[in-house]
Simulated scan of single mutants.
Amino acid sequence: MATFPNSPAAPVVVFDVNGTLLDLSVLDPHFARLFSHPSVREEWFHLLERLWMVTLITDAYEPFAELAEAALRMTAQKWGIALPDEEKAAILQGMKALPPFPDVAEGLAAFREAGFRLAALTNGSLATAKTLLERAELTGFFDGVFSVEQVKRYKPAREPYQLAARGMGVATAEMTMTAAHAWDIAGARAAGCKTAFLARPGKVLNPLGPVPDWQAPNLPELARKMRR
């Protein structure tokens, strides 16, 4: 993977990882086999999102992997099925091998060629994020990779966005957070960031939430809009 050395003064764009750069639908066959319907994967992930929101309200941080497993066990209990250890392991290990969406490499290259500095900010662990980006051959696009575990506060709390801004040497107002999640857009805006919404399949904005500065159906189109 070629690297794209850009000036430290270049504008900064930070990307969410799971569901924005990397495609969770690769896990659907596991859920189809276990629950007889692949859509349960989305139900599980929505429950996982609720669990990390609870950690913010209660100020009781738990690691992402533990929340993911807890959400999986809760989903199985709700559906009234047993959760074999091998199936649980396959899903949780699958989270460490997510592929990029087809437009990601082209889109990130377009951002770099337009002069942007790029970073990734994940609600997952730092080690897993780095492994995922390396396996997806995306590492060379990024000047920084950050995780909420470094501040023990999940997005959409302000602290993770502030962490990424500090790590990139800019104020939050000088950083654009790009995500396919309405809650991420809202959190970034509350932290003072500019925002860009990537409309991945099935992802929509909250009509009561902040309007992003940019939005597009794919990364290359978003890069074209933001370079103007």
Rank of each mutant, 00 (worst) to 15 (best):
A127T: 13
A127E: 15
A129R: 03
A129H: 07
A129E: 01
A129V: 04
K130P: 01
T131W: 00
T131Q: 11
T131K: 12
T131E: 11
L133T: 05
A136R: 04
A136C: 14
E137N: 14
E137A: 15
E137Y: 15
L138Y: 13
T139H: 12
G140N: 06
G140V: 12
F141K: 03
F141D: 01
F141Q: 05
V145Y: 02
V145R: 03
V145F: 03
V145K: 05
S147C: 07
S147A: 15
V148F: 02
V148K: 01
V148T: 12
Q150Y: 03
Q150R: 08
Q150G: 00
K152V: 03
R153S: 13
R153N: 05
Y154L: 14
K155N: 04
K155V: 02
K155Y: 00
P156S: 14
P156D: 13
A157T: 01
R158P: 05
E159Q: 12
E159P: 01
P160R: 04
P160Y: 15
Y161G: 04
Q162I: 14
L163D: 09
A164T: 04
A164N: 04
A164C: 08
A164F: 06
A164S: 07
R166H: 11
R166I: 00
R166S: 09
G167A: 08
G167W: 03
G167V: 08
M168E: 15
G169V: 11
G169D: 11
V170H: 12
V170C: 15
A171Q: 15
A171D: 13
T172A: 15
A173Q: 14
A173N: 09
E174P: 02
M175H: 06
T176H: 01
M177K: 01
M177C: 05
T178A: 15
A180Y: 08
H181D: 10
A182G: 00
W183N: 00
W183D: 00
D184M: 08
D184R: 05
D184V: 03
I185C: 11
I185M: 11
A186K: 14
G187K: 06
G187H: 06
A188L: 06
A188E: 07
A188I: 05
R189L: 06
R189S: 06
A190F: 09
A190S: 15
A190I: 04
A190G: 07
A190Y: 09
A191K: 01
G192P: 01
G192E: 09
C193N: 12
K194I: 01
K194S: 10
K194W: 02
K194V: 03
A196N: 06
A196F: 02
F197A: 00
F197H: 04
F197W: 10
